[in-house]
Amino acid sequence: MEMTTEILMSTMNTTGNGTIDGGNDVVTLLSQVSNILILVFLMISMGCTIELEDLKETFRHSAGFFVGMLCQFVLMPLIAFCLSLTFKLEGAGALSVLILACCPGGTLSNLFTYWTEGDVCLSVCMTSVSTAVAIGMMPLNLFIYSRVWTDDKAVIPYVNIATTLVSILIPVAFGVFLRWWKKEWTKYVTRFGVVLAFILIIVVWVLFFMLNPTWLFAGWQLWICAVLLPFLGYGFGYSLAILFRQPHFKCRAISFETGSQNVSLASTLIVVSFADSPLFLDMLFYPGLYAVFLYIDSFIVIMLMKGVMHLKKRRNSANDEDHDENKNDKIGLDNEGMATDQEDGVKVVAMKQIVADNSVKTDEEIKV
């Protein structure tokens, strides 16, 4: 789960005299603790679903990785750039949309993949790899696309990227170890972790609305972009994965990894790079909007995927039943054919016996 960081929350909640409201300090602390717990429990739960053989298989067949990286660092920035031009966003809005799209995938994509029975191992590996690759790809993409709106050079938060990577790898490694050591425990650990993470996500949502009421005042263009960006990421990610002949359970993982971005990292980059810019305050709107619609869009997509999967299972079940009926009918026909053959065989034997008896009688009559 990614929301805004402490520095972003503090900036958005200063009072008129420039001091931080003490009540907001408590809410901010609660939000931070909740985010940490979500990350830890969620990634341990995801690690508990991964076998060591799954990891070997994922790295052995790395086509999914390349498709995911293509979607994450080529497709998403291009989509954000096109959205910004299409809706004629001003500098602050366009830059915030672009920055968020250039960030690597967030850990929520792993949860969404788990809920839709996707390839969780691929999802977790892609999150880790994309976070590492972002060290080079984020500055490159921002240099390519941001020139239209600003000449300011974005400062990449390398420490935050490294921290995010470590915070993903350690809990996942613990979950994988737990599955290897006590596999019978992992079912309960996964269920507990996922349920707890979901409850804490709701808590963080409430805290976010308490801390950041200003996102409601964003322009309608930003609202549309916040709605469309996850949908477009999911749709294009899935389509590109299909184009590269990936199986559907991998397509779901690639789709969620493409459309679900690391909001916390984007917020940090905005604060670090543009705190002294006149665009700064206006740039804070979009991460909050995106975080809200990420859940809404994802819920809709998850329900659609589950509906399609349910229909496919019903169709396959019906086909299996038809196949069994046809097989039983064929067996019945074969049995009837065997019975008929047996009856015919008995008749032939009886006729031969009658002929033989008649022959014996005829011989006896001739002798007489």
Rank of each mutant, 00 (worst) to 15 (best):
N17S: 15
V195F: 10
S84E: 02
K347S: 03
F274E: 04
G136E: 04
L42K: 02
F177M: 05
L240G: 04
N110T: 07
L232Q: 08
P104I: 00
S123P: 00
F73G: 03
G64T: 01
N35L: 15
P139K: 08
K182M: 05
I144F: 09
Q246E: 11
F217G: 04
R60G: 05
V206E: 05
A80I: 06
R179Q: 12
I20W: 06
Y145L: 10
M138R: 01
V159R: 15
Q32N: 15
E53S: 05
A266S: 12
L52M: 11
I135L: 15
L216H: 11
S96F: 06
L83C: 07
F73K: 04
V263G: 00
L222H: 06
V272K: 14
L281D: 07
E336G: 11
E117C: 14
D320S: 13
K327D: 14
I254T: 04
V271C: 07
V195P: 00
S273W: 02
G105N: 12
M126S: 10
V348Q: 11
L222N: 06
L29F: 14
L70V: 13
G233C: 10
F231P: 02
D119S: 07
V148N: 00
M338H: 02
N17Y: 09
A173V: 11
L85C: 14
V308N: 05
T163E: 03
G337C: 10
N212K: 09
W115L: 15
D334I: 13
G93S: 06
C102P: 05
T58C: 09
L279C: 08
L29I: 13
L142Q: 06
G235T: 14
N141I: 11
F299N: 15
L30E: 01
C48H: 03
A241D: 03
K182W: 00
N13A: 11
E117L: 13
N335R: 12
L95H: 03
V301K: 01
A63N: 11
G193W: 06
G259Q: 03
N160E: 04
R314Y: 05
E321Q: 13
P287K: 10
T127W: 01
A80P: 12
D322P: 00
L229K: 05
L284V: 10
V166W: 07
P247M: 08
E6Y: 09
V349L: 07
N24E: 04
V348T: 05
Q353S: 15
W149A: 05
T258G: 09
N17W: 10
K187C: 02
V97D: 03
G332C: 10
R179T: 01
M76H: 06
G219C: 10
W215L: 14
P157H: 05
I366P: 08
F41E: 06
D324Q: 07
I99D: 09
K306M: 08
K367I: 11
T11P: 00
G91Y: 01
V172A: 08
V133E: 03
G175Q: 12
A318H: 03
I202Y: 02
W115P: 00
L222C: 08
K312V: 00
N262E: 03
D276H: 13
L75E: 04
L216G: 09
L142Y: 10
F244G: 06
A132N: 00
D357A: 15
V204F: 05
V74Q: 06
